[in-house]
Design a protein around this nucleic acid. Structure first.
Lengths: 220, 220
DNA sequence: ATATATTTTTAGACTAATCTAAATTTAGTT
DNA sequence: AACTAAATTTAGATTAGTCTAAAAATATAT
């Protein structure tokens, strides 16, 4: 079944609005997100309901069907993979990627996106730290990432470790890193992927192998 | 001025049809290329003429204006750069790239295409050997390329050399390579960009530095 | 609980791109 | 030169997506 570019944008908007709560999404909320009039949204909701992409109850709002959810998640997957490509390969900064990715996310070619995924070494998060759904539409539900995947100038909370050997834990003690620590990533050296962090007012340079073994989550 | 995706496809079709001859392009020829009815084409020609992208004389046919030509060439540039990306980076074979590139060529972002160009190391030809216009719309008018840029399983005619030192010409004599020789490229070793060619029934392995100094053209 | 405000839907109209069928212009033939 | 065939344009209709204005349904407030 062919889904138009406009329909894809509606599905994506409904998906994102649905992340905040479990309630049905209102016509007005969609209109605001899409930047269209409520009457236009109503028309589109009828089309999406005809295609079984949403459940629509007049005056009550909509929810995505499983088919609609998978479609939305696939677009988000493409969007985030392209963002990684733009930043990692084409020297875009993380604040420049969104509008280009908005265009690229609509390119239709399963081979393209699977090869891109492999070429980027199967990234799990986009440059903003948002999780990239896998090809089955599964999303890493937890928001923990390894410190090696962290974004520059963002503050994180340490939530766990992978390697729990004595040597590794001694290293963490030495630098006052523990569960609950606030860590700000200041810089990443592209050559060896080492990072400079701020921890309890001190700056520390940390190799890739260390940062890969620390779980953090965004400090919101 | 905003040019729609459909308008871009018309401009591209007119450009390609114009390559065969210098005459005005007929409505029917465009209709066949675009796979639309002649009446639809007439409507679109009026729009393109209003936007000063073509010169249109009723019943006589059309030619691109300079503005129209530059627009068409820019789309072709993007198409061919994306083809190089797909083949060089994403393991597409040269016969798989066209339809994906047809989608990618419409992405609008000057930074994207310039960064992609640099990332691909400023290729001059696409995987089919067609020249890639530069960012000013200039096209390498001659169809000669270096043997190092040649496509696998394509037969070429040698049309010249770059290095004309005695040592280099002796090398060419040794393998019976001269102006007018038929050369078929059998294989390219990605590691060192050496190539295996067939020349007068014999196969020869040739390093990158040699193949870079031989001009060939497609054998049509 | 009834009036008022807000939200949502319907009705009718517009634009871009397409189509079919009819009319018009150009080209070809004797 | 006149007549037929082919190419092109015009006229009117259709679909997707949008809009404004009016009508209908739901929510809110006293």
């Amino acid at each position: 079944m062919l889904i138009t570019l406009t329909e894809e944008n509606y599905l994506k908007a409904i998906y994102h609005l649905g992340q905040k709560s479990d309630k049905e999404i209102s016509t007005n909320a969609i209109a605001e997100k899409i930047e269209a009039k409520a009457s236009s949204v109503t028309d589109m909701l009828k089309k999406l309901a005809d295609k079984k992409l949403i459940s629509y109850r007049k005056y009550k709002g909509v929810t995505l069907t499983e088919k609609g959810r998978l479609t939305a998640v696939d677009i988000i997957r493409k969007h985030r993979l392209w963002e990684v490509f733009l930043v990692d390969k084409l020297n875009f900064s993380w604040d420049e990627v969104h509008e280009v990715a908005e265009q690229l996310e609509h390119i239709k070619s399963p081979k393209l996106i699977n090869e891109l995924d492999a070429y980027l070494d199967f990234p799990t998060h986009d440059p903003h730290g948002d999780p990239i759904p896998d090809k089955n539409g599964q999303i890493q539900r937890t928001d923990k990432i390894t410190l090696s995947q962290a974004v520059i100038n963002q503050t994180y909370i340490c939530v766990g470790v992978i390697d729990s050997s004595s040597d590794f834990l001694k290293y963490l003690d030495k630098y006052n890193i523990g569960i609950g620590s606030e860590i700000t990533v200041l810089e990443r050296e592209e050559f060896d992927q080492s990072i400079t962090i701020e921890i309890k007012g001190k700056t520390v340079v940390m190799s890739k192998i260390i940062s890969t073994n620390i779980y953090v989550k965004k400090n919101i």
